[in-house]
Amino acid sequence: MTTKLPPLVLHLLAALGCLVLLVLLTLVTDPFTNLRIATVGYYLIAVAGLALLTGFNGQVSLGHGAFMFIGAYTVALLVKRVPAFPIWADLLLAVLAGGLAGLLAGAAAARLHGPYLAGATLALAVGLPAVTQRFPDLFAGSNGLSFTVNSQPAGLVGVVPPTRWQSWIVWLSVLLALVVLANLARGRLGRTLRAVRDDEVAASLAGVHVGRTKILAFLVSSACGGLAGGLQAFLLGTAAPGSFTPALSLSLLAALVLGGLGSLWGALWGAIALVYFQVWTDDFAELLSLRSDIADNLPLALYGVVLIVTVLAFPAGIQGGVRKLWVRVRRPAPSQRGES
């Protein structure tokens, strides 16, 4: 791996490899697992976007679900109102809509620090979905929109099961977006983002435009949120205000910390945890055959405990553990070396 390929090519190759692996994975798993794989995909890009904003740039957003809301409604309205648009155009517009909203939010947020930013973004997550109540004719009020997305080429209908096809589309989009993100993170922007996070004054003395950098971080991260929402709408055929509660925004942030803040890998672990932890705890609660009051609330309680324990005992998240393991595999511990 010492050949000097430019990062973009390297990232594209890696993405292609991942896509092949994922297609293989969907081929050997059942339709419902395909759906879950796709679900991990759209959460991954949402959390990865947040990783850029919060992990790299240090801006804590409690309202990232709002950008998913925008992406989802963009796709929903386009599918319903402009049926002739192909899905890739809808998704592209969802990215643009998310990015545009992020630009505005970022401009408003650039001067805010720590908890002020947190409070403002939380208000965004609570406030924005209320728009649907104000314009019920367009957004269908609290019931929201439901629709079916036609995305499969005619030749593949009946050949590839719909959930499998959907998971391919989701992951293709997600991997393309990740390539962009990874490139940004490794390049100049990544360094500026970290510089601003670590010390705004020093960064600005070194010629970094602090405000612009923060807005840019918001823009990129919200565009990812828009894509995630658009993919969710594409996958599930729904856009409703009840899906975009503050709980969603907070769970994205929780996934980021669970997975590990420092890298995009953490976003992957976080997204997997977000999807599968719920599944496991539900199954576990069912297994115990408890009284309904206890069984219903057990998954939430376990989720809470895991968040607390992670922060207290494993602050580097899952990625921290993975990294430690990786180091150990590559360089056997001294004692083992002695034995051999």
């Binding site: 386009l78 049926p83 002739a84 005619a154």
Partner: peptide, 9 residues
Amino acid sequence: ACGGAGETP
């Protein structure tokens, strides 16, 4: 080639 997202196949 997939056609419009809002069209019925």
